[in-house]
Design a protein around this nucleic acid. Sequence first.
DNA 1: GGGCGCACTTGAACATGTTCAAAAAGTCGG
DNA 2: CCGACTTTTTGAACATGTTCAAGTGCGCCC
Lengths: 228, 228
Amino acid sequence: MTTLTNVTDSATAKGEQTRELILSTALRLFREQGYGKTTMRAIATEAGVSVGNAYYYYGSKDHLMQAYYDLLQDQHREAVEPVLAAERAFVPRLTGVLLTWLEVAAPYHEFAGTFFKTAADPKSPLSPFSDESRPAREASIEIFRRLVEGSDLKVPAELREELPELLWLLQMGVVLFWVHDQSADVRRTKTLVNRAVPLVDKLLRLTRVPGVRGVTNDLVGLIRSIKP
Amino acid sequence: MTTLTNVTDSATAKGEQTRELILSTALRLFREQGYGKTTMRAIATEAGVSVGNAYYYYGSKDHLMQAYYDLLQDQHREAVEPVLAAERAFVPRLTGVLLTWLEVAAPYHEFAGTFFKTAADPKSPLSPFSDESRPAREASIEIFRRLVEGSDLKVPAELREELPELLWLLQMGVVLFWVHDQSADVRRTKTLVNRAVPLVDKLLRLTRVPGVRGVTNDLVGLIRSIKP
DNA sequence: GGGCGCACTTGAACATGTTCAAAAAGTCGG
DNA sequence: CCGACTTTTTGAACATGTTCAAGTGCGCCC
């Protein structure tokens, strides 16, 4: 990306190597002792570099978290493939996608709270609504677009169009619940998913009932009117 | 609370005075320069006390924010009185309560993001779901209970029971939206409230339609199954 | 080979939230 | 008013995220 040398690609390669070393060390320490207790100094020492060097690659401690989140997204995208390939019905598709996320994110549950803390700040680049995280967000919404398009779900066209984003919002809600879930093996969150998805399905099918149609249109209108 | 002296009530009075001095100074500085840019040293200096003294009364900078939030709650509770006294119909009642919150919180919009940031951390005592903030939360839910009970709304009994908590959740959602709203005079949030409330109203009235009844029961069941 | 430029690296210095042992101020029974 | 006890106050010390001016090394051109 930066140098065009091709003999050994050393310049770029070395930098990338350091970058990855720092990230993997950071993630390991986050997992082992939590975000709060992991100091930038510890990360640097453990990785065998200086503190300043870590900042050369990652503008802040939060950016290391951001990088972790991107990784998580990728893993989720990958892990979701078999589900989308195997199922056609809406309920198992959505349940699968949400439960898969829980599985992928499980090792990080303990410090995910701190992640959310940072993410909730509108000024933070990590906010799920920020410009800076747009690529990650859109990649995530893309999963839900495929989920909808490949499913047997029948809903009014306007609603279908907004659905991926709405399902993404649903996932944000699930994540918020998950972060606060202290039950063993996050059983409560799993219950939430398993029971909420059929409910969402029922609701979506109801949108075709005449009496409900008006509400659906209102909803779509509302969504469109508040988009930035 | 601590001493029973009544001659001048000096001991307690002096302590309380210092406590209030620190809080009001902090809130002023938060408003003037934002949460992040206000240092504990600045608060102490401005209030004419030592840094340690601020920590004697407030365990952390976040606790000063917590105190602010409690104040906000109180103001909201008060400001909402006329609305609940004047209106009987559900839509204006709910719209009024939500818009009133926006009004009361307006002066703090700029630094409210940082507040939410802290609040989103499940480990933080400021989390709206935490034990430590239970009193504030319940006081807030109480407003919605009165809103529902004094209204002309007709919904199934089980749902009505859960409604105050659900409306409180709705408010959390509005607040989240508000925090991220950068439009002038938070017009988008106001639009959201004005359009979402009638929609909620329609939805609630639909719960009495036979075909929808099943979904309502599912919803109530879901809510009860995931409560801690 | 020598030097120029750039990517990379360093570690000390800084800013700020937080802690804490000690001092000061206040209270009260005698 | 004294001395013991409690409440309040102090400010220096600490921990940690972040910045930055100064290196270090590597590739490339003459």
